[in-house]
Amino acid sequence: MPLSTQNEINREIAAISAEARATVEAGGTPELHPRRGYAPYRSSVLRHPTHALVKADPEEIERTSPAFGHTDVDSYEADLTIQHPGEPLGERIIVTGRVLDGEGRPVRNQLLEVWQANASGRYVHKRDQHPAPLDPNFTGVGRVITGDDGSYRLVTIKPGAYPWKNHTNAWRPAHIHFSLFGTAFTQRLVTQMYFPGDPLFALDPIYQSIVDPAAQQRLVSQYDHDVSVPEWAIGYRWNITLTGPKQTWMEQDDDHE
């Protein structure tokens, strides 16, 4: 099948967004997550369930999560710019924020993993064939354990946008992939953090698969001048919320620590 044009993708996105907006205006609940079946993202077509998910009360294994602590990660893994002998190319940035549950309580001592393209938009992955240079001083993988207040702080390079083959002239907005564990496995989250004001948002079916505009904004970091370090790096702030099932189990979980 020939690739669609960007205009064809835009029309599909607009039609779904209009339908979603009408549903909310008619009193429907805004959707918090992307739709698993979202045809403008072509790879989703054969990879989403067609049955409704079966609602289930989480049992104890699902209300717990693997235990992590500060001995699981080396402190230097939070700095993606010091993993090689030389300095990576690109714009040095700081990304910081807090991981909180739906009640605003810190998600502490949990593992946060990140991975990203380099400043040219190229991943250190053998299947990434984008003809942009690899950077011998940048791998683009980091890990951090959240602090007692749920905070994390990463030092990295601002990733570049990159092309992909969803449709003709398709480009992903610059993003950093995040993987998070909450205190319950039901809070497990893999997502992508974006940068403010990216002109590619409107054109990107992965970003647009989140049909609620307010929910989309929750993936966009904010420039924070208080995070920027003079003469050294630009700062972005991004907070993450992991709601879960009803959270009465948390006190019980604390007993194990």
């Binding site: 918090l32 997550h33 992307p34 993202y41 790879s43 909180l100 739906g102 009640e103 605003g104 993993e113 990140v114 991975w115 393209a117 991943y123 250190v124 992955h125 299947r127 990434d128 791998t139 683009g140 993988v141 993003h175 992939h177 993987s179 989250l189 893999v190 997502t191 992508q192 992965i206 970003y207 698969s209 989140i210 307010a214 929910a215 989309q216 929750r218 993936l219 907070n239 993450i240 919320t241 992991l242 709601t243």
Partner: peptide, 19 residues
């Protein structure tokens, strides 16, 4: 009280990061 951070796909290029 804040709302859930939305999910996004793990994408094709996690192989050098997550395993």
């Amino acid at each position: 009280m804040s709302e859930q951070t939305p999910s996004q796909t793990v994408g094709p290029f996690f192989g050098y990061a997550l395993p």
